[in-house]
Amino acid sequence: MSTETPEPDITSRPRGRAARERMYQYLLLLCAALSILVTISIVALLARDAITFFTLVNPLDFFGGTEFLLSRDVYGLLPLLSGTLLVTVIAALIALPTGVAAAVYLSEYASDRMRSVLKPGLEVLAGIPTVVYGIFALVYVTPFLRTIGLPVNTFNILSPSIMVGIMIVPMVSSLSEDAMSAVPDSLRRAGYGMGATKFEVTTGVVLPAAASGIFSSFILALSRAIGETMIVVVAAGSQPRMLNLAEPLQNLWQGFQPMTAAMVQINSADSVSQLGFSSMFAIGLTLFAITFLLNLVSNRIAARYREEYE
């Protein structure tokens, strides 16, 4: 009976099966390659209009110009760069120490239960839409700064920068915490074996060992602060201004217009010249170049520390 059943031919390879497999592979490869296409089209499309712009405006005048006036077709990048710089510096002053301290707490001190509350909580900070942070800055933080006696204008650079700082804290803390968790326990034990206290192990062993990871998180956070748009659009005003180096503190109370906010303003302006429109792409390309470079550097550093302990 059993001899009558034909042996199933399990070794046969039906024709076309291999071709089908290859088809799916190429389709999926196409999906993956799309990301390259996105990058290329960003660069190409921004460059197209930026080049038109630079044929009409000398790049030196653009990158070295100290005045930005759409109505008079004067396009100097420095006032916009001043705004971006201020936001980034203030946000960094808030976020970098806070983020690293939070990472130290989460990685070295927190109990499991605390971690399970604080970590998702910090992630929530990164998930709040940036326009909401902008409204916080404009409607609640600026009046609050006034009540505590700071002479801030309605639109000022200080309150949006504080909000940008709070927004990027989770980015610093989660990446730094990853770096600190990657430090092998044997290093900590060696420290304790030498009679060091927990404080000494944390500051003397863990932090230096995780330094490159922490540094890479800093760069990433700065890049996020540079590219942040809605917070500054809502709360920083629309007045491009040069840094007042004689009285540095005065800068904080005034409104600035960072690069991102300038792009939004050009785009939403009622009547803007062809040149003004293409200046938006020149600013966009500059912004893209800065953030892309920072991201690259950060990835490089992060890759290096991963190699160190794995």
């Binding site: 921004l46 197209r48 209009d49």
Partner: peptide, 20 residues
Amino acid sequence: INIGNLAGVPSVVYGLLGLA
């Protein structure tokens, strides 16, 4: 690498891409 970098491109640049 490119995907990692694209995740860090400012959102306003994507708006510019959409516009163009």
